[in-house]
Amino acid sequence: MSDAPDDAKGAHAPPESPEERRRDADDGPRLRRAEDELRARFGEELREGEEAQERVGASREAIVELQHVSLAFDRPILENISLVARRGETVVIAGESGTGKSTILKLILRLLQPDSGRVLVDGEVINDVTYEEALVIRQKMGMVFQGAALFDSMSVFENVAFPLREHTLLSDEEIESRVREKLEFVDLEPDRVMDQLPAQLSGGMKKRVGIARGMAANPAIMLYDEPTSGLDPLTTGTITRLIIKLQRELKVTSVVVTHDIRSAFRMATRIALISERKIVFSGSPEEMTASQDRYVQDFLGGV
């Protein structure tokens, strides 16, 4: 019941009509100017992104993969989505609000099942696993929710310790040292925050505790749902740096859903842009700025 299809983050925002989009098309020079402009604007972010790609290299095995996935509830949400995240890669799924981006994360976590197509995690097809098997598969993944989704009846310590208590046989001392380590990793002072309740934390701190909880059991895959939405620019920078640090130091594979293209450029090895239920662009941040596609340019220009 808990994976009932009740939370496909409403795709109710009517997307811009194709007519509007085509309205002032066929202007090559304008687009080239736009590309230069984008390069100037995002130069630094792009360089960071390139570094990330170099670190990952190319021919690694796919660890998260969607093959021709379609999903519909009352109306179609996703159509023929194919997406690969290789080991160590950071794939950013970008797009307007309400285009089913978060739904992709729910598919990877098997909180939802696709109508057609296959979802693979660590080489295993997870379409038809039972609810109990799904609980086990999810332990390979750490999820960071948009609103952090910390358990508000538990202290910060208990939140971060939760996955360890549930799935490991670590002693209390080992759990405490692991929690401290994770809190330090996300730049929080363990002694100051451990006994606080989530309600006492600021938005950015909640996010960081959420990341610490997500990575507590050392998952190979981290999933982020809008990690920077609703945060001030400074905190956005901190969280973005944190995600990069995670991928750099711990070599985790990340799938990030965001509409914040600036931080996307900084952390992505690849970006998939979703519009009207389909992937309209997929490639490196470099390729994205160079893309002559009208929608891609509009999306970047609208930042």
């Binding site: 808990s2 609810y131 989704a149």
Partner: peptide, 14 residues
């Protein structure tokens, strides 16, 4: 507030 989803993703049956 997605805490039920969080339980699910942490591999715990809500």
């Amino acid at each position: 507030t997605e805490q039920i989803d969080a339980l699910n993703t942490l591999g715990v049956d809500p």
